[in-house]
Design a binder for these strands. Structure first.
Length: 262
DNA sequence: ATGTCTCAGGGACTGAGA
């Protein structure tokens, strides 16, 4: 069984102890991280190695920063986009990928978008189009591949505890849901959805307004796999406990098990 | 009550981003 997980830690400096405890508790084979908020050189490689993991890190201080952790070597590493996309904002560290266990694994942190009327939302929509093109140019849906990360998209109203409160926000707008469907249309399967078809399970709760105790959550963190991998998925879950206790991330980790290799 | 958290600048608090 191969266990793959994704988690937006919202600052690795603030969440390092939680990360090490998470690795010990769940022992994932592959873990994609987002919002490291630190430089590549500041990543705690030695402590992660002591826990039994190698890491491919695309860090950035203050904001962004993504990584992939695995207990085996991370092959064919790719940092950022595979080509120059001609976008002034592509300097943001939001994408990293590698081949692990014969699977192309991508860790992505899609821009939040702030407000629908903002420039940041237009950047989010452009970024999602770049992501679709990246898959089209450099990958095949016939190969085992998994797109993991904080997509900042709740794909369906069943992924939102209070859909009326979130309608036409940057997490639920028709444009971003359409972009999500473009990813699905390329050949990705929503692995978590396969095991929870009715929805009602969430991965993120705003720090503000007591969202977590009130249950005001959304599922915006995803594991999207191509058919060869998705068809081997055995289970998927969200570790809500990671959103509890002292100083949690606002995101909970999403985990899935695969009967891999088939 | 945007009921909070994190980072940076600067050296206490404010603004930005989510």
């Amino acid at each position: 069984m191969l266990k793959i997980a994704t988690w937006n830690v919202n600052s690795l400096k603030a969440r390092k102890d939680r990360l090490l405890a998470f690795l010990k508790r769940h022992e994932p084979d592959v873990l994609c991280l987002q919002e490291l908020k630190l430089d590549t050189a500041a990543f705690p490689l030695a402590e992660v190695a002591d826990a039994g993991y190698q890491a491919l890190v695309h860090g950035q201080k203050t904001y962004n920063g993504v990584a992939i952790l695995a207990r085996v070597p991370l092959e064919q590493p790719r940092i950022g986009w595979g080509v120059d996309i001609g976008d002034a904002e592509d300097s943001q560290a939001r994408l990293v990928s590698a081949v692990v266990h014969g699977i192309r694994v991508l860790s992505v942190y899609v821009p939040n978008g702030s407000e629908p009327s903002s420039d940041k939302y237009q950047y989010k929509l452009r970024w999602l189009q770049h992501l679709v093109h990246e898959l089209e140019r450099h990958h095949s849906a016939k190969e085992p591949l998994i797109l993991c990360g904080d997509l900042n998209i709740a794909p369906d109203d069943s992924d939102v505890a209070r859909p009326d409160e979130w309608r036409e926000t940057v997490l639920c707008g028709t444009e971003v849901r359409s972009a999500f469907q473009q990813l699905i249309g390329w050949g990705l399967h929503d692995v978590f959805r396969q095991h929870h078809p009715d929805g009602g399970v969430f991965s993120w709760w705003d720090y503000r307004q007591l969202s977590f105790p009130k249950g005001n959550g959304l599922r915006i963190d995803h594991l999207l796999a191509t058919t060869p991998l998705a068809r081997t998925s055995q289970d998927a879950r969200i570790d809500r406990d990671e959103r509890k206790g002292k100083l949690p991330s606002d995101h909970a980790p999403v985990l899935a098990d695969f009967a891999w290799p088939p």
